[in-house]
Amino acid sequence: MNAEHIDNQLDAYLDGELPEQERRNVFEHLHGCRQCHQTLADAKSLRARLANLPVEGPAPDFFAQALANAANQDRQAPMNRWATVIGGTIAAGMALLVVVGMLGRTPAPELTPELQGVTLALHESRTLNLVFSSAEALEGARLVVELPHGLELGAYPGEQRVRWKTSLQAGRNVLPLDLIAVAGNGGEIVAHLRHGDKSKTFRLRVNVTDATSFLIEEKPTPGQA
């Protein structure tokens, strides 16, 4: 056995997956083969490094908050599913452009820019363009959009929390959201934009009126988050 190296058996050897006789053969080979012995040591070292990779824990109150969120979203779910059918029958409205913020070089302690208000009629389906401005390209940016009770995205009916992973290019990046007001009085759309360890949160207030006509309120775009 010494004539041939046994690299391809070492994983199974370390995993305890080899039958007894083969395990004994590998064991004997390792005593007589310096190269395979070194390969085994390297394999053990690599596994130790992986086993010691730390797991960064969640935020201190994350589990409690996540459980509460799950319960809250479940309470809202039946009405949302019902109302989606109605909302989906309404023709799409004109596009509405809302600049929700820019990405700052320094992490602002106040992550919420000035709120902008939008009013939609109940069961109205409209395109809301969220615009993110960035001076440079950002690979692997993540966006989480949280919707209040009564608002849904056409592509994701029944989901109050939708996530994307994407790349932003330098300039203005537009994410069109087909927003449907299906119930309730509106609330805040919260968008969390993350890149690496940095994150910013933007909030957009949406009022839902029980009327066939609607009023759009656009406040001046905040200069910077």
């Binding site: 820019m102 990405l103 700052g104 070089r105 320094t106 992490p107 401005s133 960035s134 001076a135 440079e136 950002l138 330098a170 300039g171 203005r172 890149h195 690496g196 940095k198 910013k200 910077q224």
Partner: peptide, 12 residues
Amino acid sequence: ETDGDPMDSLAG
């Protein structure tokens, strides 16, 4: 495309 507006980057 970016038009020279004073937009900051996220890095920092």
